[in-house]
């Protein structure tokens, strides 16, 4: 009896060790794999830039931003801003993701911002229109803050991944006049290019109306589907529908194994950019899903192209 108990206890200890090692292995691998694509962006010399966290945009905690600045302000110089927007399905994520991207730009002599926006609770209160408005406001507030600190920003680019990629496209395309400085280009990864509900698996009018209501914050019922107002509401949050002749050059990356964002959406954006003659580049990550984690060579290609966009479209230039 006692021997049996001892054996059971030992088996439990072994099971606990197995589970603990499993969790540790999972977490360690996750940390390594997720950080891997950002190795190229790593800045070894932290003295090249400064970062101020949690600056206020509109007084709310959900819209704070982090500001990355080159170490020393050149009062006579003009600066370019890279405006980073985090992903997370519009319901999660945090501006802390910007720590993987923004130091790279600041160390090269640009200003960078990583902005939060009020996340959706699925009830339509926080939606793509409110997120867009908050981000535009933050861009304006951040540029003013930069000026106060001696960094005169004269141009900007938007960037982000997933939901952040979509919002980066919206901020760049929707109303450039609402931004404090001209947008020169946008570069994004795996951002949804359209919110046509059928492309998101909605097959009934009630589902279509609920989906569009949730994403836009406007109230639609099944009988509204197909109306002008309904379509206009979809279009104003769909980057592909916002592309016109004046749209800015666009760098995009997508993975065909993406199971989060329907893979067909990107073609709407490609077609719109083609139709309006907007310069754009698409880098496909053929072995990757939504995280773009399966193609290190394409990751490098994306960063190289990003540097090319910076050199080509930013008028202020960047340090080598």
């Amino acid at each position: 009896m006692r021997k049996g108990l001892k054996r059971a206890g030992f088996a439990l200890v072994c099971a606990a060790l197995f589970a603990a090692a499993g969790v540790a292995g999972f977490m360690a691998t996750m940390a390594v794999e997720v950080a891997e694509p950002y190795r190229y962006l790593k800045v070894d010399d932290a003295s090249l830039y400064t970062v101020d966290h949690d600056l206020e945009s509109d007084g709310r905690d959900t819209t704070r931003y982090d500001l990355y600045l080159p170490a020393e302000a050149d009062e006579s110089g003009d600066y370019s801003l890279v405006f980073y927007i985090h992903g997370g399905g519009f319901t999660g994520g945090d501006k802390a993701d910007g720590d993987l991207w923004c130091p790279y730009f600041a160390a090269k002599g640009m200003v960078a911002v990583s902005a939060n926006y009020t996340l959706s609770q699925g009830d339509g209160v926080a939606n793509l229109n409110t997120m867009y408005a908050e981000l535009v406001r933050t861009a304006n507030v951040a540029v003013e803050e930069c000026a106060r600190r001696g960094y005169r920003v004269t141009e900007m680019a938007t960037t982000g991944g997933s939901a952040g990629g979509c919002l980066a496209l919206l901020v760049a395309y929707r109303d450039p006049g609402a931004l404090p400085v001209p947008v020169r280009f946008v570069f994004e990864q795996t951002g949804p290019a359209s919110f046509e509900p059928d492309l998101w698996g909605q097959t009934e009018d009630a589902g279509r109306a609920a989906f569009v209501s949730m994403m836009t914050g406007r109230s639609f019922e099944a009988q509204d589907v197909g109306t002008e107002a309904y379509q206009a509401a979809i279009d104003e949050i769909s980057p592909a529908a916002l592309v016109d002749d004046g749209a800015v050059p666009t760098l995009m990356a997508y993975g065909p194994k993406d199971k989060v964002v329907p893979v067909a959406l990107k073609y709407l954006l490609f077609d719109a950019l083609d139709a309006h003659g907007v310069p754009h580049d698409y880098i496909e990550f053929p072995h990757s899903g939504h995280g773009l984690l399966g193609d290190p060579d394409r990751t490098q290609e994306f960063y190289d192209k990003m540097d090319e966009y910076i050199a080509t479209y930013f008028e202020n230039g960047a340090d080598a």
Binding site: F10, F18, V23, G25, F26
Partner: peptide, 30 residues
């Protein structure tokens, strides 16, 4: 005692391998 330690070490190693494999499967699915 020594046999117990060996069994425990094997459990730790097997757990770690399973964790790494599970993470890769998860990331590929994502």
């Amino acid at each position: 005692m020594r046999r117990k330690l060996v069994v425990m070490a094997v459990c730790v190693a097997a757990g770690a391998v399973c964790g790494i494999l599970a993470c890769n499967v998860f990331l590929n699915a994502f």
